[in-house]
Design a binder for these strands. Structure first.
Lengths: 228, 228
DNA sequence: TTTATACTTCGATTATAACCGAAGTTTTAG
DNA sequence: CTAAAACTTCGGTTATAATCGAAGTATAAA
């Protein structure tokens, strides 16, 4: 079966922990120079240079030369998606300190991810939207159905205003602890703001979020979500 | 940010060409024993045994013991999807993303799952078998009733020959999109082959399946299945 | 022109793991 | 009970590649 593309070649490029650390850094913030990536992976510049050459050769990242600087980027959304899929089936990384663990536990339940809801609550909410047929899942974005248009209008979220904003509208965002997608983009942000306005949720320190008593009732009535 | 999963661990499991060959074989045909997989990867049984242990340990494949036999299968659709994504970015293959999307829609309706029917059609067929009393549902397998023996004989499927094959006979397989079980194993495979022989269904590119006009009539007459 | 910065190439060392022969374990078959 | 089959474990060998020091190239600044 020689004509089939060989996924082990790509897997090998991702399999080295130094290269993985650099890819991970580029997923968070692209356009980084080699010395920065070497630092993030805790390796010497020479070693990093070799790794980066392999990743470019394998079309996982691209490089732009500006004088003596070289800035690296993830080569395509397909690469990012492949890494996401691997992440979904990867075991969670061991957490070293107890202190980190207890904080991680708290934050797992409900938290904000930049400017939208993540954690168990963010994922539950998104899955309720999908199940009720308000959203459908595309490759990179969620799409709002007619039923969804109606729902969000009644929920006092102005979709047209959000669509006119110069940012993603209903982007898929992977939750690392739940290993599931949740709603990001301007719609994700609008949902967070609306839930805060309704006092259904409250912000706690360190990006954690708490569901209020009022919120428990509201979420159950409008979306059938029960807290555990 | 301590709880981020480490994708390089999974990538490493897929990075070895012998392991990749075995995973590839399991994507095409699941429920294979170790010696078969060793042969496909051109390695000794001892080496294969070590590789398979690692893949099981990493939750990429699962194993079920039946006496001195051990049958391996891809652990979950997530694993299959991750490999698919890696294949997309592997060299020497280009994919048109628009075509890709419309195909994904088609694939949800009817498709093959490794080597048997899945999707809405696979589930409907299996439920018809159950409803007519040709199959009953066990813990892990379906069981063929006396009525079923007669039906499959008339349908030109030789059950005794299938039972002698070195693989599962009538395994339950969960369809991810329909969230229902459908018929896998050698009987599931035989049903797929028979429907193709009868020209009731046709294979489309990439695991999608189409019900023909002849098939619509045949499925309705013999099993009362109507296409939606 | 000289020096500093950013990165690459080369070479030697070292760690990892893929590999198979041989021996061991478990289960079925006779 | 013995033998065969299917698979695992152990041990030694070998191939791969990750690593960094040292030296080299390219560009910019002084």
């Amino acid at each position: 079966m020689g004509s089939r593309p060989d996924f082990s070649y790509v897997a090998k490029l991702m399999a080295d922990s130094s290269r993985a650390a650099m890819l991970d850094a580029l997923l968070r913030l692209d356009g980084l120079p080699a010395n920065e990536l070497a630092r993030k992976a805790n390796i010497s510049l020479q070693t990093a240079s070799g790794h980066l050459a392999k990743l470019v050769e394998g079309n996982l990242i691209s490089v732009e030369k500006y004088g003596r600087h070289r800035y690296f980027r993830i080569a395509s959304p397909d690469v990012a998606q492949a890494i996401e899929k691997l992440t979904i089936i990867a075991p969670a990384q061991r957490i070293n300190s107890l202190k980190e663990f207890s904080r991680a536990e708290k934050v797992r339940i409900a938290r904000t991810c930049y400017d939208h809801l993540a954690g168990k609550l963010g994922v539950s909410l998104t899955e309720a939207f999908l199940e009720k047929g308000y959203l459908v899942e595309g490759e990179v974005d969620f799409l709002v159905t007619d039923k969804g248009e109606k729902f969000f209008r009644e929920f006092k979220i102005d979709l047209d205003a959000l669509r006119n904003k110069r940012r993603y509208f209903a982007r898929k965002c992977l939750d690392w602890s739940e290993r599931r997608y949740h709603l990001a983009g301007s719609l994700g942000n609008a949902v967070l703001i609306r839930l805060l306005d309704l006092h259904w949720i409250e912000k706690l320190p360190d990006r954690a979020v708490r569901v209020t008593k009022k919120g428990r009732d509201g979420l159950y009535e409008s979306l059938g979500i029960t807290s555990e």
